[in-house]
């Protein structure tokens, strides 16, 4: 009778659980701390009476927040929680809700829970809002909160420290903010693979996909994706603009032992949604235990249908 079902449930409850990713655990903790510092818990029904433990320090924090935090509500152009496009990013780190860290991900549509940190000499735009060095922007309940830091308190964001080429903040002069950045060509460092101490590899594993899509065969566009390993746990990615693309979805799969699964959309890990290809290559991190990552970019039309897909690039991390 119900015994079989109950036994199955008990089995499920005893199932071994793999260790959660360390970078997820620490990333989430950092994000919660940032959220806690930027937005205190929701007020109870009678907000006039605050818990006494807030005390003087909390009062000061509230005043500082009132003065320094600009809360801006922008329109939502999508059915999903994605609403804010990051652009013109220089020396910017974005931490997503799942702990994924992206460096200078121009064009990224910031989902709920994303925290944007601007480092020394850095800048970025989120919609019409200009972020400058030291600012922290958080997407909370589909709203953009900007915490403007005093200039004297500007510190470099906690960028991944394992990437030689990215641990040094990008000079502010390396990229002038542009309203319409040209279609990105892979940067020189990306076009010419350089030897890495760990000799990681990137291998295209599939030709451009020509399976059925909404694009007529005569108008097939190839979505060129370049991805390579740039550090023990970091991947640098860039791709080219596609005519008619409304969104780009960067998807991936990860494996701790053996080949990673084929990335599928929908279904696979979504690394980020972008309104346009990053003006320069973006970098994202994977956890230390990962030995292989496969990435692919999906270009979507305005109606959400798949316009075209890039090849799959396989990246291996010697461990």
């Amino acid at each position: 009778m119900n015994d079989e079902v109950r036994n199955a449930l008990e089995d499920a409850g005893r199932r071994e659980v793999p260790e959660p990713r360390d970078d997820f655990a620490t990333g989430l903790e950092q994000r919660l701390l940032t959220l806690a510092k930027n937005s205190p818990p929701d007020a109870p029904p009678q907000p006039a009476r605050r818990p006494s433990v807030f005390g003087l320090a909390a009062g000061l924090v509230a005043v500082a927040l009132a003065l320094a935090v600009a809360v801006t509500i922008l329109g939502n152009d999508d059915r999903s929680s994605v609403a804010f496009e990051l652009s013109d990013s220089v020396n910017v780190v974005v931490v997503l809700a799942d702990g994924t860290t992206l460096v200078d991900p121009d064009g990224l549509l910031l989902p709920d829970g994303a925290v944007v940190q601007v480092g020394v000499d850095g800048s970025a735009r989120v919609g019409d809002i200009v972020l400058t060095a030291g600012d922290t922007a958080t997407i909370v309940d589909r709203r953009l909160r900007v915490d403007r830091q005093p200039r004297s308190a500007v510190v470099s964001p906690n960028r991944p420290t394992t990437t030689p080429s990215h641990s040094t903040p990008t000079p502010a002069t390396s990229k002038e903010p542009s309203e319409n950045p040209p279609a990105p060509a892979p940067p020189a460092s990306s076009a010419t693979p350089t030897a890495s101490p760990t000799r990681p590899t990137a291998t295209p594993t599939a030709a451009p996909d020509t399976s059925p899509s909404s694009t007529p065969p005569s108008d097939v566009q190839y979505l060129r994706l370049t991805a390579r390993v740039v550090g023990p746990s970091e991947v640098r990615v860039t791709w080219e603009r596609i005519r008619g693309a409304h969104r780009y979805i960067l998807i991936g799969t990860r494996s701790r032992d053996g080949p990673a699964a084929t990335p599928r959309y929908p279904g696979s890990w979504i690394i980020g949604r972008f309104a346009k290809p990053p003006a320069e290559a973006l970098t994202f991190t994977v956890r230390d235990a990962i030995v292989e990552v496969k990435v692919r970019v999906i270009a979507l039309a305005a109606d959400g249908s798949v316009l075209t897909r890039s090849r799959i690039v396989t990246l291996t991390f010697p461990r």
């Binding site: 793999p18 959660p20 990713r21 997820f24 818990p41 929701d42 809700a97 799942d98």
Partner: peptide, 22 residues
């Protein structure tokens, strides 16, 4: 699914933080 478990875990703690006063 680890990725979904991560999403659920994130959402749980965020909601817990926001609702702590209740």
């Amino acid at each position: 699914v680890p990725e979904i478990a991560e999403d659920i875990t994130s959402a749980t703690f965020e909601r817990a933080f926001r609702s702590l006063d209740t």
